[in-house]
């Protein structure tokens, strides 16, 4: 298997007719992802390189059986796009859009988590999900990945590529790589994804890539200790971040002692998780444990 996306993924892209949406949507298709539809209100009936465009997600799912959506629309309309996909019965929603107001996400995520038919939302402000050799939904460069037994979950984008690249170079493949994003209110956090990896028979080890700010890593550490048999290796970025300085995105705010890289490392190690000191060491430790 793999998690979230795989051979049975039927992808629709909200915003496929846009510049970024078409570039990455078609790149995902080229990778082998089954891209079945695009949704752009007002452009229904047209197509993007043969992929049919619909006005609404419901029309697209009815016509194509799409079960996964990638959101590539501008921030002011992105929360609405996520809600629309959820309402139309999409099972996995991957939101790449950066800069969605936290208030919008608070309401959207609350709604999604409450429903009887809870859709999995990954992101927003994330690089997406790739199950190497099966499907790629998002902007992770597929060529740095290779099939294998390691699951990866990360709050960062390019740092994920770096670590996946190091793993691949060591001949260690990945089951699924998930970028949960760095926003204050993510659709899925580490625990949501770790839970899926724990149930996945292809995943033999999980790499968790965290960064300063918040307490998602600390909570993940406690959860792993209680619930996980699959070994976990971690890496945390931001040891040299000065306290109280913003480092580029909302997930990376240090507030006092809690949320620092050192506190996270301590919590992870206390849960029996080995923490690498740099991205290269991640692949070395993974190689040792596999």
């Amino acid at each position: 298997m793999a998690i979230l996306i795989g051979n049975d993924t039927r992808l629709l892209v909200q915003g496929l007719t846009g510049r970024e949406g078409s570039f990455h949507g078609l790149r995902n298709k080229k990778y082998g992802t089954n891209l079945v539809a695009g949704v752009t209100p007002g452009k229904g009936g047209s197509d993007v390189e043969g992929v049919p465009i619909f006005d609404t997600v419901r029309e697209a799912t009815t016509a194509t059986g799409a079960n996964t959506s990638m959101v590539f629309v501008p921030p002011p309309v992105a929360a609405d796009a996520i809600l629309e996909s959820h309402d139309a019965g999409i099972e996995v929603i991957i939101a790449i859009t950066e800069g969605i107001p936290a208030m919008d996400m608070a309401r959207t995520v609350t709604h999604l988590r409450r429903g009887q038919r809870a859709a999995a939302l990954i992101g927003p402000n994330c690089p997406g999900v790739i199950s190497p050799g099966k499907a790629n939904v998002g902007i992770i460069p597929g060529e740095v990945c290779t099939e294998g037994p390691v699951g990866l979950v990360s709050r960062s984008g390019t740092l994920t590529y770096q670590i996946v690249y190091e793993l691949t170079q060591e001949g260690i493949g990945q089951s699924t790589c998930v970028g949960v994003g760095g926003d204050p209110i993510p659709g899925s956090d580490f625990i949501d994804v770790l839970e899926r990896f724990e149930k996945d028979d292809l995943t033999k080890l999980v790499v968790l890539v965290g960064e300063i700010g918040g307490d998602a890593e600390e909570r993940a550490a406690a959860w792993v200790k209680e619930n996980m048999r699959t070994p976990v290796v971690a890496y945390i970025a931001g040891f040299t971040a000065p306290p109280g300085k913003r480092m580029g995105h909302a997930g990376a705010i240090v507030s006092g002692s809690q949320g620092t890289a050192a506190a996270k490392k301590e919590a992870l190690e206390a849960a029996g998780i080995r923490v690498a000191t740099n991205p290269t060491e991640v692949s070395a430790i993974v190689g040792e444990l596999l």
Partner: peptide
């Protein structure tokens, strides 16, 4: 996105996570 720090090794990278990681390896 730029934040001034006190050292003498200038850092340029893409993506907040990778840049933070770069700061860490330079420090190390």
């Amino acid at each position: 996105t730029f934040i001034k720090l006190d050292g003498d090794v200038g850092i340029i990278g893409n993506g907040a996570g990778l840049v933070m990681s770069t700061l860490d390896v330079v420090k190390a």
